[in-house]
Each structure stands twice: as structure tokens, then as C-alpha cells.
């Protein structure tokens, strides 16, 4: 893992947002005034309630959509879909009519056909799915589907891995296992990761840095450098005293956002009990 690079000023940032705003049609922008820079090898988490534009930031990074204002730069150039990034989605998005192996080869059109299969088998082994290579996604469990979706992204050897609430639709146990697995995979193979979640614990467990976002319009309200040692696997950060403090702090911020957001289901619900 190349976490050390995260704070070095030598290398060019892997990703850079310069005063980025994105509006869909008229109305309030989905995100506004986004300035950020991600170092190669860094694992950054976008944390925030729904409607804060987290997914929009990933789509902008992937080049799937263009900013309305400002610039997005991937290693100095505007992103082109499928060139330096790979995405992992909450809803897996596997092609149901392709076997596990063919779902991976589909994502590798840039390789010669013979190499694609080789590469797919390699990566299936890497995530422990070799024995289901010829199975259709419909027959796989949720955890296996998400591992396959992750394998499909890793097979492309992206400079930046974009993960959109990838574990949100898994049950608690599968989620915990996948988090550990992701840490293992990114340890074995250095990668810059942009990870979107609305889970405070997940953000604290996985990230080097957390961008706390607030909704309507989506913007970054706080950036937190996490003080935990890079090796999360051998030293669980949940036992760290800072973990508890940050967890409480993040929860408070998120609760305030949700209670004060007219668009949320809980708008105004906490007014009586909280003095602010």
C-alpha cells in the first residue's frame, strides 16, 4: 500500500476538483464549490446523508458527466470513461446473461481476446471466485455478486477505483467481510480509492481521509484526516480512542444536517430535545 505518498507533495494529485459545480437542468445544483485533491494511493471517503451529491462526485470523476462549472482533472487531464477509472456500484450491475468470467471479460475490451480470458481467470482467483467462473450472476449470493463486481473493476487495473456505496445492499456480516477483503485487496495492490458511503463506521474503518458532505446543495463541509495506522487489518481502529471521539462528532454533524434539511424525512423531528 502506498499510503505514505498521501502526504508527499512531490507527485501530481491522482484527482483534482477545481471549483466544481454540477446542476442537472435548472434548479439547485447537485454539488457546488467542490475543491479537493486526492494523492495517489490515498483512500478517501465521501460521507454524507442522501441527496448530498456523493454519487455525482463519482460520476464526475469517471467522466460519465461533465461539470457545469469548474474543472475535474485526473492526473492532469479531464477524465474519459473507462480510461483510468473503474466503478463499483451498490446494485452490483452485473450482466445477468453473462457468466461470472464473461462479466469480467466484458470490462476488458482494450485487451486482445486471448488475454481477456486469462486476465479474468487471474482476477477471479484473486477474489476467490474461481469455482463460479462459469455460473450466471443470478445463482450467486449477494456477497459473491459484490465480489464479482469488485473483481470486474480490479481487472481493469484502474488508477482510481470509484466505489458508490458498494456494500450498502449487503447484510451486516457480508458487509464486514467485504470491508476486510477490500482492505486486503488494496494492501496487495496499491490503488487510489474514492469511496462513497452514508455509514460513519465504514468511513472511519476504511478511509485515510473523510470528506463530510452536506445536502441541498451538495458541498464539502469538513475534511478529516484520520489518525489511525495504515495497517487496519492487524490493528483494528475501532479500539482506538480517537475512533469513538470522531464517531460521535460525525454522528452529531450528520444528525444536524438531516434534522435541518427540509428535504429529509426527519426534518424538524429533533428540535425539542436539542439546544443549539
Amino acid at each position: 500500500m502506498t499510503f505514505g505518498l498521501a502526504h508527499s507533495m512531490v507527485s501530481e494529485p491522482a484527482l483534482r476538483f477545481e471549483a466544481v459545480s454540477k446542476s442537472y437542468g435548472a434548479g439547485e445544483p447537485a454539488v457546488t464549490g467542490i475543491d479537493l485533491s486526492v494523492a495517489p494511493g490515498e483512500f478517501v471517503v465521501f460521507l454524507g446523508p442522501s441527496g448530498c451529491g456523493k454519487t455525482t462526485l463519482l460520476s464526475l470523476s469517471a467522466g460519465l458527466i461533465k461539470p457545469t462549472e469548474g474543472r475535474v482533472l485526473l492526473a492532469g487531464a479531464p477524465p474519459v470513461p473507462g480510461q483510468k477509472t473503474a466503478m463499483v456500484f451498490q446494485s452490483f450491475r452485473l450482466l445477468p446473461w453473462k457468466t461470472a468470467r464473461d462479466n469480467i471479460t466484458f470490462a476488458l475490451p482494450h485487451l486482445p481476446p486471448a488475454r481477456r480470458r486469462e486476465r479474468a481467470d487471474e482476477i477471479l482467483g484473486f477474489v476467490g471466485l474461481s469455482r463460479v467462473a462459469d455460473i450466471y450472476p443470478g445463482a450467486l449470493s449477494g456477497g459473491m455478486k459484490q465480489r464479482l463486481a469488485l473483481a470486474r473493476a480490479l481487472a481493469r487495473e484502474p488508477d482510481i477505483l470509484l466505489m458508490d456505496e458498494p456494500f450498502a445492499s449487503l447484510d451486516a456480516q457480508a458487509r464486514e467481510l467485504m470491508q476486510t477483503e477490500l482492505l486486503q485487496l488494496t494492501t496487495k495492490r496499491a490503488a487510489t480509492v474514492l469511496f462513497v458511503t452514508h455509514s460513519v463506521d465504514e468511513a472511519l474503518l476504511l478511509g485515510d481521509r473523510i470528506f463530510l458532505m452536506s445536502p441541498r446543495p451538495g458541498r464539502i463541509v469538513e475534511t478529516i484526516e484520520l489518525p489511525f495506522p495504515p495497517d487496519r487489518l492487524s490493528e483494528d481502529p475501532r479500539s482506538h480512542p480517537e475512533f469513538t471521539r470522531l464517531r460521535a462528532h460525525l454522528w452529531d454533524s450528520l444528525r444536524d444536517m438531516v434534522l435541518n434539511d427540509p428535504g429529509s424525512d426527519f426534518y424538524g423531528r429533533g428540535a425539542g430535545e436539542r439546544v443549539s
Binding site: 460519465l64 470513461p81 473507462g82 456500484f89 450491475r93 470490462a107
Partner: peptide, 10 residues
């Protein structure tokens, strides 16, 4: 959603 996924692979 699948079309967006495909686009994200280029």
C-alpha cells in the same frame, strides 16, 4: 443502470 455501468468501462 447496466448501460451506465457499460459506459463506465469505456
Amino acid at each position: 443502470e447496466l448501460i451506465e455501468m457499460a459506459r463506465s468501462t469505456g
